[in-house]
Amino acid sequence: MTKYVRRRYIAAKIDGNKEFNEKEAFGAVWNSLTRLFGEYGASLAELSLVEYNEERRQVIFRCSHKALDMVKASIVAIIEVANEKACIRVIRVSGTLKSLRTKMANLP
């Protein structure tokens, strides 16, 4: 029997003067994660990008619930995306994608 893996979904928003694509946003978080916690730490995080809304500059990441603090710290530590000054702010964290979307929809 396979073990149930608990996940966390993180909604974040990119602040910067330039438009960024999905690859650049994920690359920035991935680089920050490997810089702070190394390749071993990054492997524990099981980080992946679920959704990217280029218009609203919102991105949803998925990670292991045990590595949530690591991933959040990595997101906050970003000061550059694709060699442009930018930062990423964590908006909401949730256990399911459905509840995250509901929470996001209720945001002012």
């Binding site: 959040k72 710290a73 997101i75 906050v76 000061i79 000054k85 930018a86 930062c87 702010r89 964590v90």
Partner: peptide, 16 residues
């Protein structure tokens, strides 16, 4: 301004 983060974000960084 680019170095300014919300308090909750800084709390995540304090984990380090």
């Amino acid at each position: 301004p680019i170095l300014l983060r919300g308090a909750d974000d800084y709390c995540s960084l304090a984990y380090l």
